[in-house]
Nucleic acid binder design. Structure first.
Lengths: 111, 111
DNA sequence: TAAGTTAATTACTTTTCGTAACAAAGTTTA
DNA sequence: TAAACTTTGTTACGAAAAGTAATTAACTTA
């Protein structure tokens, strides 16, 4: 590990966004507040990792967690202002993906 | 693993960009074509991983690799058009980082 | 001949990921 | 009353990826 001459804020920001599943989860939450099982269904992530990532994102102040003590318990996740501010990042990722990404026919995921 | 209702191009694009070190390497190459050791010095990544990632990025058509058979050998990496097209993504990441990211005083890397 | 250079690889340890089984807490069903 | 079901989250464990350090190839210079 070496040091970097890059702006520390930018470096940390990029590292946060480079963590696996983080951007896909934020992308999903941009469609509105939703509960655990909804996110789990929308993204090919396991419950174990989703739980871990949501905890990380709450820690980072990107996601808000609200508990409704019904039965069974209902927990709704939503984006904070910091999370909502990621909308432009994700919009540009979508633009780039649609213009440049090609699906390699050899890497079918059995849909 | 479950399937996703998300656009497959966007999902794949986000997955590519979410791979560790990828965005930082592209960010670094946006400042111009440069050789292996320059990137290695600018980013806190090990040579082993940098070599692996550059191979991935060349495979994805994001990075171009040019060999100058001098002594010792000089190899210059640069962004392709597909790689250059990531500039808006990275610009928005920088904007977000500078506005929202705070450095936790407990996580000093000994500079 | 020995030492030095850059890009990359190999060997090995540590961390993270993916899968599946299980737990808590309360409601409904039998 | 007990068994079964719900959602969210945890635990256990094998597999994959990352981090560290030593080594290689190919050629030059001392």
């Amino acid at each position: 590990m070496k040091q970097s001459s890059l702006c520390p804020l930018v470096e940390k920001g990029i590292q946060v966004l480079s963590k696996r599943w983080t951007v896909l989860i934020v992308h999903q939450l941009l469609s509105g507040p939703q509960r655990f099982c909804t996110i789990e269904t929308a993204i090919p992530i396991s419950g174990r990792l989703l739980s871990e990532r949501l905890k990380d994102l709450e820690q980072e102040g990107i996601v808000h967690r609200e508990v409704y003590p019904e039965t069974p318990v209902r927990i709704v996740y939503s984006l904070t202002d910091k999370g909502l501010a990621l909308a432009p990042v994700i919009r540009e990722m979508e633009n780039w993906s649609r213009e440049w990404v090609k699906i390699d026919p050899d890497e079918h995921e059995t849909l």
